[in-house]
Amino acid sequence: MLATVAFLAFWILVGLALFFIAMRRGPRGKHVAAEGEGRGSRRAILTSFLVFYVAVGIAVPALLITGNEDNADAHVGGTQISLTKQEVKGRELFGQRCANCHVLAAAESEGPVGPNLDQLRPPAELVYDAIVRGRQRGGGTMPAGLLEGSQAEDVAAFVAATAGR
């Protein structure tokens, strides 16, 4: 979010600088009067510029940013799924700790070691137990205690809500 604000602030300052340079009649303030130019035409140009600047330079980017943030939480792995706050946290943690080993379309992970969670579709209790106690079967070994407490619950909720969907 901070990067977005900094980006917008930079372009707002650039636009304002260009505007004030133009209003001073160029970088050195010299100007040859054009025919029919007066205070009224300068005021009309200023008003037109400000309206255009606000509409294009501020309103459009703000609408696009707002629309993208709202949309980002709704789309998971290319499918439309509504996630709770707990599941959103679980998605982030899954990406950090689990995605290297497990396949889960909702996290866009293709891990080759652990079981394919989309095919398995485990309930939250099984996922939580595997995270806390680990697994020593199959082609790989999942260590115990990868996450604890609410973090393990968040990942379990995310996997249960999205696996196979």
Rank of each mutant, 00 (worst) to 15 (best):
D118T: 01
L83E: 04
I81D: 03
E87V: 03
Y53W: 14
H31C: 13
D154M: 11
P123E: 15
L13N: 09
G149C: 12
L8A: 02
F7D: 03
A124D: 10
L46V: 11
E125N: 12
A106P: 02
T4K: 08
L8Y: 00
E148K: 15
V113F: 11
G90V: 04
A3Y: 11
A161W: 02
A124V: 09
A99L: 09
R24H: 09
A72P: 08
G139V: 07
G139Q: 03
Q119C: 02
A107L: 03
D129T: 14
L147K: 12
L2R: 10
I131Y: 05
W11C: 01
G145P: 14
S48A: 15
G95I: 00
G139N: 03
V159S: 05
F20N: 07
G67D: 00
A9Y: 01
A105G: 00
G15V: 01
R133P: 04
A22I: 10
V127R: 05
T66W: 11
L120K: 07
R133C: 09
L13Y: 08
D129L: 11
A3H: 10
R39L: 14
L146S: 14
V103W: 01
F10C: 04
Y128V: 06
T79I: 05
E35F: 13
A6C: 08
L126H: 14
G134V: 07
A55F: 05
V103Y: 03
A107K: 00
E87S: 04
Q136K: 12
D70A: 15
N100S: 15
E148Q: 15
M142G: 08
K89C: 05
A156C: 14
A156W: 08
R133Q: 13
A144C: 09
E87I: 02
G67I: 06
V5R: 03
G95Q: 04
R121M: 12
A62K: 00
P115N: 11
A55Y: 04
A107D: 04
G15D: 02
R42S: 11
V54I: 13
A9N: 01
A130E: 13
P112Y: 00
A6H: 02
R28Q: 10
P61L: 01
N71G: 07
E108R: 08
E37A: 12
Q119M: 05
G149A: 13
V54W: 05
G138C: 04
R25T: 12
G57N: 02
E110Q: 12
M23K: 12
A74P: 06
A72Q: 13
G134L: 07
A124E: 12
V56A: 10
R137P: 09
L104F: 02
M1S: 11
I12R: 00
V14Q: 06
A157E: 07
F94L: 06
H75N: 13
A72I: 09
P27C: 12
Q151C: 12
L126V: 14
I65D: 03
A130C: 10
